[in-house]
């Protein structure tokens, strides 16, 4: 099945250089990777390895200095600002280490946002958001604000927000970094379950325990990708 799967991420020879005054800093050096539909991949690396930069590039938050990047067949480097926003909105679901929920919005309003930015009707957005929150066991917390929720619950709201628009790719940056071990475990179970349901998931972390739970791990160090399996 994997052999025939669609290639979601096709990155080739990605180089990212940051210009710091006159000093050039090569953060990513000739990185290439393919991620197929239905994959569950952990990108593992210590801090300063360039994994955050890689995540920003994969998430279309930033563009590489050189190289090629096709997301779901779309040439990201040729996209304009507005198109990048559309790609992020429709093809990618982000999960952040610090959840990044909007503090003044309720759980359901937070989850509705990506659909609203897509131009969906409020009622439809509300229905989908409610469905996803229920799926993640937050059916009773729809109208709570983030500060009324535990860390684990907040991360589940964030995950609901990431998957509400049925993206091609869920991109999670240290999703367990701010959670206690029980909530971490729960979050990983959720990702595994989402993957079983067909979602493509990429987790970026420095936590080996997270990496140990998946089959495919990509190691990154000093801006280079090592040992793929």
């Amino acid at each position: 099945m994997i052999e025939n799967a669609k290639c979601i991420i096709d990155a080739r020879n990605i180089v990212k250089i940051y210009q710091n005054g006159s000093e050039k800093l090569k953060v990513l050096d000739d990185v290439s990777m393919q991620i197929l539909e239905g994959d569950f991949i952990v990108i593992l690396g210590p801090s300063g390895s360039g994994k955050s930069t890689l995540m920003n590039l994969l998430g279309c938050l930033d563009l590489p200095t050189s190289g090629q990047y096709y997301l779901d067949g779309l040439d990201v480097l040729k996209a304009k600002d507005n198109q990048l926003a559309e790609i992020r909105n429709q093809k990618i679901g982000f999960v952040f280490q610090k959840f990044n929920l909007l503090p003044r919005l309720t759980a359901i309003q937070n989850v509705m946002l990506p659909l609203l930015y897509r131009g969906a009707k409020e009622e439809e957005a509300k229905e989908s958001a409610k469905e996803k929150l229920k799926l993640l066991g937050l059916g009773e917390r729809l109208n709570h604000r983030p500060n009324e929720l535990s860390g684990g619950q907040q991360q589940r709201v964030a995950i609901a927000r990431a998957i509400v628009g049925n993206p091609h790719l869920v991109l999670a940056d240290e999703p367990t970094g701010n959670l206690d071990s029980k909530s971490s475990k729960d979050a990983m179970e959720i990702f595994k379950e989402l993957n079983r349901q067909g979602n493509t998931i990429v987790i970026i972390t420095h936590d080996i325990e997270v990496a140990e739970q998946v089959k495919k791990v990509i190691y990154i160090r000093d801006g280079r990708i090592y040992d793929k399996n």
Partner: peptide
Amino acid sequence: TKEIGTLKAIGAKKRE
């Protein structure tokens, strides 16, 4: 600022 970043990540355009 961080919220604006989040909004951009989930697909808010400049105009929005």
